[in-house]
C-alpha cells in the first residue's frame, strides 16, 4: 500500500521537474530551464549518494570526491581535445559526452573502490570522518596540482557534444540530463528491489542477522559504495558541462555537505527524495538570495528546523499529510 502511494509521489515529483523544464522552455524562460537542469543534475548526484546512505546506511561525507572526479574527467578530456595535447598512450582527449561519461564513471568507480575498501574497515562516526578526510585529500591535491588550473580551476568554452543534439541549447541539455536522471531512478529502483538490494538493506537494519543467514556484509557494501560513486560522478560530469567550468570547489567538503543535504531534505532512502531536496535547496537559494545577501544564514536556520522538527524530510511530510487527509475522510 505504502509502496504504491510512494510510487505515485515519485512519478509526481519527476513529472513536475519535466513539466517545469518544458513549460519554461515554451514560455521562453531559458534561465528557468537552466535552473531545472541544475536540479536534475544535483538530484542525480543525490540519487547516487542515497543508494549508499539511504539504503546501505553508509553515511559518506566524501561524495564530493566522486562528484569532482566526474567533473574533472569532463574538464580534462575536453581541454585535451581542444588543444590537441595528447593525454596518455596517444589518447588525445575527447569532447564527446558518450566518451566522457564512461571515463568519469570508471575513474570515480576506481577511486571509490580504493576509498571504500579502506573506509569500510571502520563504521559509524569513523566512517563519516574517514570518507570526509579522503575527499579532502583529493581536494588539496587538486589545489596544489597546477597542470589543470590548480586553485583557479579549468574552464572550457564549448559544451561537450552529444550525437544529434545541440547541447548548448538549454532545453536540449535539459533533455539529456533529465533522461539520465530518469534512467538512474529506474536503475536505483530496480537495484533496491533486487536480491542484492534486499541484502543491502538487511545489512543496514541488522548486520548480525544478515551475516547469520549467509550474507557477507563487506562485498555488498563495497559494491554499493562503488555504484553510488559512479552515479554521483556522472552528475559531476554533467555539472561541469552545465557550467563549462570545473574547480577544486567541486571536491570541497561543502559540496559533500550539500549533496547530503539534498538527500536528507527530501527524505533518506526515498527514491525521489534527492530530487525534491535539490529542488527545494535551489529554489530557496534562488528566492532567499533575492531577499538577502546572507541567505545562507536563513537556509541554515531552515535546515535546523527540518532536522529538529521534521525528521523524514519533505517526502516524509507529504506522506504524513496524505495519511492525515485519508484518516479525516474515513472519519467523515
Amino acid at each position: 500500500m505504502t509502496m504504491n502511494r510512494e510510487f505515485i509521489i515519485n512519478i509526481m515529483i519527476f513529472g513536475l521537474l519535466i513539466a517545469v523544464g518544458i513549460g519554461a522552455h515554451l514560455a521562453g524562460q531559458g534561465f528557468t530551464v537552466t535552473l531545472a537542469t541544475k536540479v536534475a543534475i544535483l538530484g542525480l548526484a543525490g540519487v547516487g549518494l542515497n543508494l549508499a546512505l539511504g539504503y546501505g546506511g553508509l553515511v559518506s561525507f566524501g561524495h564530493a570526491a566522486f562528484f569532482g572526479i566526474g567533473g574533472y574527467a569532463a574538464g580534462v578530456l575536453a581541454s585535451h581535445a581542444a588543444n590537441g595535447d595528447p593525454l596518455m598512450f596517444g589518447f588525445g582527449g575527447s569532447n564527446q559526452m558518450l566518451v566522457i561519461w564512461p571515463v568519469a564513471m570508471l575513474a570515480a568507480g576506481f577511486a571509490a573502490l580504493m576509498i571504500g575498501a579502506l573506509s569500510l574497515r571502520t563504521s559509524g562516526v569513523y566512517f563519516i570522518m574517514v570518507t570526509l578526510a579522503f575527499a579532502q585529500m583529493i581536494y588539496y591535491f587538486a589545489i596544489s596540482w597546477p597542470r589543470y588550473g590548480g586553485e583557479d580551476g579549468l574552464s572550457f568554452y564549448v559544451r561537450n557534444a552529444f550525437p544529434g543534439m545541440n547541447t548548448l541549447k538549454p532545453i536540449e541539455y535539459f533533455t539529456i540530463c533529465a533522461s539520465l536522471l530518469g534512467l538512474a531512478l529506474v536503475f536505483s529502483g530496480l537495484v533496491t528491489q533486487s536480491r542484492f538490494g534486499l541484502a543491502l538493506q538487511s545489512i543496514r537494519q541488522n548486520p548480525q542477522r544478515a551475516t547469520a543467514v549467509g550474507i557477507r556484509a563487506t562485498p555488498v557494501r563495497l559494491t554499493t559504495f562503488v555504484i553510488s560513486a559512479m552515479i554521483t560522478a556522472l552528475a559531476g560530469a554533467l555539472y561541469a558541462d552545465l557550467n563549462r567550468f570545473v574547480s577544486p570547489s567541486m571536491f570541497s567538503w561543502h559540496m559533500s555537505g550539500e549533496i547530503m543535504v539534498f538527500v536528507i531534505l527530501g527524505g533518506v532512502g526515498r527514491l525521489c527524495g534527492p530530487i525534491a531536496g535539490a529542488a527545494m535547496f535551489i529554489l530557496l537559494e534562488h528566492l532567499l538570495g533575492k531577499v538577502s545577501d546572507h541567505w545562507q544564514a536563513l537556509l541554515g536556520l531552515m535546515l535546523l528546523g527540518i532536522v529538529l522538527f521534521a525528521p523524514g524530510g519533505l517526502i516524509g511530510l507529504i506522506t504524513k499529510g496524505l495519511d492525515a487527509l485519508r484518516k479525516e475522510k474515513a472519519d467523515v
Partner: peptide, 27 residues
C-alpha cells in the same frame, strides 16, 4: 536535542549551524 538522534541528523544540524555562524559573522 541531538544526543539521541543518529549521526546523520547530527551532521546535518551542525552543518546548518556552520552556515548560520559563518553568515552571521560575515554580516
Amino acid at each position: 536535542r541531538l544526543y539521541n538522534r543518529d549521526h546523520l541528523d547530527q551532521v546535518l544540524a551542525t552543518f546548518a549551524l556552520i552556515l548560520v555562524f559563518s553568515e552571521g559573522t560575515r554580516w
